[in-house]
Design a binder for these strands. Structure first.
Lengths: 66, 66
DNA sequence: TTTAAATGTAAAGCAAACTTTACATTTATT
DNA sequence: AATAAATGTAAAGTTTGCTTTACATTTAAA
């Protein structure tokens, strides 16, 4: 699963901490998601899409698993 | 998080087992998701949306947590 | 109406999403 | 150049998505 959170976040001039607060997860979680260490939960994906005012499909690109 | 998987699945005349096979999870997982016992992971949500040829947003309705 | 298929549910266990704490490194600011 | 802000990363722990096994109940078919 790929995502363009880092770019979208930069476009809004937000820090990882800012974003973390808005979506109610830890800063490390935002970092890990951006770095592709793991996928967010569905609720977290919804909150992310809300912040960037876009669809989950625009935020994340599904790639068949391992 | 609400969803209309049960209805969409019925419309395609699929059993929970059929759907489980297609999205590569267990039948119990499909049942639990339909019954709202837990939310699917993001990858599973993507696979579900693919089966029903719709967006994740059409499948799931986000509701602020606990 | 018996049999089979589909669904519901439960327990135990594993894996992944997330937390907190903590520290090191990189990038801005002064 | 010094300081602060932002980012990266790691370890240990909790929660939740998901598995398997197992069985009970509901719905459909013979």
């Amino acid at each position: 699963m790929k995502n363009n959170i880092k770019e979208l976040r930069a476009a809004l001039k937000m820090t990882q901490s800012d974003l973390a607060q808005q979506i109610e997860v830890s800063r490390q979680t935002v970092n890990a998601i951006e770095k592709g260490k793991f996928d967010p939960s569905l609720p977290t994906a919804f909150r992310l899409a809300a912040v960037f005012n876009c669809s989950i499909e625009e935020l994340f690109v599904y790639e068949s698993e391992s």
